[in-house]
Structure formats: structure tokens, C-alpha cells
Write a protein that binds this DNA or RNA. Structure first.
Lengths: 194, 194, 194, 194
DNA sequence: TATGAATGAGCCTTCATTCAT
DNA sequence: AATGAATGAAGGCTCATTCAT
């Protein structure tokens, strides 16, 4: 297991910091190596190339991110509560980690097609989690069944993602977590007066 | 008026094509010049630098994009119909222009902070259009007034943007425009069974 | 006679100003054209290329410079007085024209071999003037005849040139013209106590 | 000590040759790298930028140049003999190194203000050496005390510099070192018949 | 395993000069 | 004579990756 090797984690964490501090394009491999306290060449003992570092960053961090959400939502009774918990966890985890928020919402998007496709592959399990909550809601007759699930998932993910991005670009000046119930209300009830 | 100069348009259009075909990072100025049929140096008679080309591409194309939407929504009677028209126009304009869709949804996001901020400035009028439709809906007692408008706007824009991005990344294999009524339904009524 | 054409003089004078203000390497042809109030292309109706502008600048200005000195020295009776007058005129003309001093002492020296050779050709008449004064001094038994004239001329010109360059590089903070009698004394008597 | 690194010296020496052969403006970094037998990028491990190469060339070579002169003059008994030795060493060192002579007398002068100021800083110790010899001469009552030392130094340096430049521009056709006693005589006794 | 010096391909931008009007 | 838009060659510098130690 490569993440048992201490330098592997060292490099991943250094990469998050360097990218958050310098931006994607100013994050040279040598800068990451320096931050991690290893030689440039050592990076290539653990990662195939620069892109592999970035993919691994996302893989590691998103893995933990999703795991937390899965664990928390599993403790909830119904789909609506699970959705609220997912929103709360999505917001709170990014609010708790300034650097990670910058990297996921801004910097990692400045990548080429190949990298974006790998990021999407990594993101897949999160989308599956959303899908499953929606399916559960439909079965429980809480959520509508007349609109295809992918579309519903796009609304949910798009809303969360846009909300976090706006918050990051506004320099995180307001309380992101406090928005969770309102976002949940919007997603469940829509914009219409009931 | 700089866009009366024929070479200006020539270069803008060439840039859209080149970026869509090669991706942002593989779009050398010389490639754009060649496609436009002008000398490399000519680019710099019309644009300050490479970043200025990209900002101008977005400015021109997004200007037209928003104008079309404003014109079309103004012909509608109430906020709900205006929202549907906005969604239809958003989808149809990007569906009609393959290259533009790739550039706006994928390539232009691979940019540094300075460029992203300029892109956000250009995007601002579109967000204002959404805000105004929401305000109108609230006045007409069609839309809820218990949730802040920026949050509602983020849900709307986030949903549309995520939907288009998914469509582009799925290689535009399904009918985007056909999704408009479902997306409209989702935004207005939410995910709950009424 | 090309210098009867008004634009010719306009361009020459613009060139002196532009070079003095911006330095040799930042003096683009377009900048000179703008300062002269003509189009870029017009420059090439009067000058073969950029180097030709610079040579012409030196030719014009140095022509006047030498003419003034010849006229003034001719009014003197003997070689020693002529030498003093030459030193005074050399210093006073450059002290009177800030821009010209910068151009001749600093900027024009940043040129390639071909240009330097042409500058030397233009400078030749000045060196001849010095040679003639020295010859006259030798004939009048005022100046020594045991050292070759070119060597004496190099001492005279080198001393004057180095003195002016130091004055320019010290931002012309002291009185250059006031140094003339001391320099004259040094050249005639040398560094030895009587 | 950076000049212990073999590539540092390799690049410095290659730069002297390339500049002497091609002139300052035709001396591309890639040409210097090729001559030194290193990759272009290697240059930038040892020098900040192209200008830094030139400054370093002058620093290294002028350092040795001055050191030689200081050592030699220190072996002399009085100021007049020291001055003669300084002139002999100044001439002989440049006569012995064709490329270095071209670089110091012609090419290095084609530089911008920033570079010239750095060159002057490097040249300073040499001017101090001259000043000290003059001061010693004044104390020994060999040299006059009625003219300010900077002016005397300008005469000495200006004469030597002009003499070497003329020799280089005349393609080094005559014996420079042989001129030393005459130049010494001129500087000490001046142009007047005693 | 680890190092870090060395590599070299790659690109944006400038500006002297031309030429159709 | 005059214009000025257009040209396109040229080069300093960066940085991901390699490899001898």
C-alpha cells in the first residue's frame, strides 16, 4: 500500500499546501519537493509524473471526504435527513480546510482534459452516494419519480458546488455551514411558493 | 469600435476553434494566428497579450449569449415562463455551438486567478438577469421570499452549469435542449413529492 | 541637400531626445517617429535604416560641435591657447546640451561594431583638429616633439572624454566648464612637480 | 565558492570567446552554452540571467587584472615607477589576451545603464589603485598637489583607455606594450617642452 | 532508496522594415 | 511624399524529467 510509505503522505500534503498557496500554474514540482523536504528526484519514486501527483491529491482527499459523508449519512433514518446531512458535511469539511477548499474549487479545475477526466472518475463515488440517497427518497415516496435521477443529481451537486465556489471566491467571508438548511429547503421544495 | 475591424473578429473566431480543438494549454498564439490567417505579430495589434485574447473571446461570446437570453425572456409574461425561456436559451445556444460549449464549460476554467476574476466580471450581467427574474417571481408571489436571492441564483446557475458540463463531458451524446422542461420543473418544484 | 528638408531635421532632433530620455535600447523607430510627428514609414524616406538615423544624428551634431571648435580656436594666437579654447568649447557645448551629452557619452557607445566604426569616421575631423593644434605647438616649440603625435592626441582626447563621461555619470552635479584650466594645465605640464 | 565549480569557469570562458567573436548583441545564451559544452538551462543554474553572465565575466577577469597590477606595483619603490609599472601591466595584460581586450574595450560598453553601473562598481578598485599611486606621488613630492586627484585620475585612466581602444580598433597592428614609456612620459611631464 | 545537477524542448512577445493605399 | 497596418524572425527563460552517484 503506497500510502503507508511516510514520504508518500508527506508529498501529498505538501502538494495541497503548495497549490493552495501558489495556484495551480505556479506549483512546480521542485516547490512541492522542497515543501515536503525531499529531493526533486524522490517525487518520481512515488509518482509517475506531475499529473499523477495531482490525481493522487484528489484521490486521497476526496476519498476521506466521501468516506466521512457516507458514514454520517448512514446514521440517518430517511432520505431527506440524509440529504441534509450530506449538505452539512459537504460544507463543513471544506469550511474546515481552507487549503483543500481552494484546491478543489479553484485550482484543480485549471487542468487539462486528461486530468479532469481522472478527477471525474474519482468524483464518481460521491455522485453514486447522491444517486443512492435520491433512489431511497423515491422508494420512500419522499422524492419525485417523474424526473430522471441523473438530472436530480446534477441539480444537487451543481447547487452545492456553485455555492461553495461562490463562498471561496468571496474569500470565505460568510458562514457556509449556516447555509445548509436553506440549500436543503431549496433543493427539496424548489423556488415556488408551495 | 474594435470589433468592426475585420481582423479582430477573425482572431476571436480562430481562438474559439483553436482552444476547442487543442485545449487551453496547447493553444499557442502562433496556432491562433495561423488559423486566423494573420501574422503572429498582428495578434498584438488587437490584443494586449495571450490572456487578453481569452478574456475577449469570453466577452464577445458571452455578450451575445446574454443578449439573446435577455431579448427572449423579455417577451415572456411572468417569471416562471421567463425562467423556462432562460433555461431553453442557455441550453440551445451551447448545443448549437459545439466549440463554444467546450471552451466555456471546460477550457476557460483552466485559467489563473486573474483570468477567472475577469471571467466572473463578464459573467456578472448573466447572474443579474437571473436575479431579476427571481425578484420578479417573488413580487408576483410565484417564487418564495424566505430564502435569500443569491442562494436561489446559485441553485439555478449551478444546476444549469453542471447539467451542461455533464453533457459536454459525455460527448454531447443526448438531447440537451429536451432537458429544459425537466430542469425547470426541478428548480421550481424541488425534489419533493408535492 | 537632405538636411534642407524640414522632416529630416525633425527626425534627427526627435532621435536625440528619444535616445536621451529612453536610452539606446529602448529607442524604437516608432517612438522616434511619434516624437517627430511623422509616420513610421516616413522615417524610411529619409533614412536607410535605424542605424542610419543614429549615424546621421552623430554626423549632424558632431559636425556642428567641431565647426564651433574650429571657429573658436582659429581666433587664438598660439597652440597652447588654442588647446585651452578647445577644452573649454568641448566642455561648454556638452554642458549646454544635456540630452546631447547623454547620447554621445553613454548611449551611442552601446552600439555594434559597424556603428562604432562609422562614429569613428565622423569623429576623425575632430581628431585632425587636435593633431593640427599639436603640430602647431611643436612648430612653435611650445610642445614636445619626442613623442608621436597620435599618442599625444590619444592623451588629450582620452582625458577630455573620460572627464566628460565621469561628469555625466555623476549626474552633472559639478561645474564641468570650470575644470577646463586644470585639465589644460595637466595636459601641458603633466603630473610631475615642475 | 562558486568559481570552484568547474562549469562556472567553463561558462565564463565560453562567454568571453563568444562575445569577442560575435559581439555583444549577437551573443545568444544558446551560443555561449554550446561553446561551454553545457545545456542552455545549465547557464541558469549559475547565472541569474544573461546580464549576470556579462557582469560576472567582467568581475572575474577584471579581478585578476587588478590583482596582477597591485602585486606588480607593490614591488616598486616610488610613485613614478609604480605608475610606469601600472601602465606596462595594463597594456601587457590586454595585449596578451586578444579576446579579453575586445570584450573590455568594445563589447562591454554596449550595455544598458544598469549594466554600466555594475561595470563601474567593478572598475572602482582599479581607480582606487590609481588614486593611491597619485597620493603617494604627492606625498613624495614627485607629483603636483595643486590639481584635484579625481581629475588626475581621469587623465591617467582616460589616456590609457583611449590608447588601448585605438589599438584594438586598429586591429592591434602595432606594439602596444612599447608605448608604455612614452605614455608614462606624457602623463608625468605633459605636452610642454620642459 | 535518495539525491540534485543537468538537461533541452518549448513559447510569448518585440520591433525593424515593408507596401498597398 | 506620406501613411500605418501588417509582417515574421528571433531569443531569453522555465521547468518537468532523468540519471549518475
Amino acid at each position: 500500500m503506497k500510502n503507508n510509505k511516510p514520504k508518500y503522505k508527506l508529498i501529498i500534503d505538501a502538494a495541497v499546501d503548495v497549490i493552495a498557496e501558489n495556484g495551480y500554474h505556479a506549483s512546480q514540482v521542485s516547490k512541492i519537493a522542497k515543501k515536503a523536504g525531499v529531493a526533486d528526484g524522490t517525487i518520481y519514486l512515488y509518482f509517475k509524473n506531475k499529473e499523477d501527483i495531482l490525481v493522487s491529491v484528489f484521490e486521497e482527499k476526496m476519498g476521506q471526504f466521501i468516506e466521512q459523508i457516507v458514514t454520517a449519512t448512514n446514521e440517518r433514518e430517511n432520505a431527506s435527513e440524509k440529504l441534509l446531512t450530506l449538505i452539512e458535511m459537504h460544507f463543513s469539511q471544506l469550511a474546515a480546510n481552507h487549503h483543500l477548499a481552494i484546491v478543489t474549487q479553484l485550482e484543480l479545475r485549471q487542468s487539462n482534459l486528461s486530468l479532469r477526466q481522472q478527477i471525474n472518475r474519482i468524483l464518481k463515488p460521491y455522485l453514486v452516494v447522491i444517486d443512492e440517497i435520491v433512489k431511497e427518497g423515491v422508494e420512500e415516496k419522499l422524492f419525485r419519480s417523474d424526473i430522471k435521477i441523473p438530472l436530480i443529481r446534477q441539480m444537487i451537486f451543481g447547487t452545492l458546488d456553485e455555492t461553495v465556489t461562490n463562498w471561496v471566491m468571496n474569500e470565505e467571508k460568510y458562514d457556509l455551514i449556516g447555509l445548509a438548511p436553506y440549500v436543503h429547503e431549496l433543493i427539496t421544495k424548489g423556488v415556488s411558493v408551495k
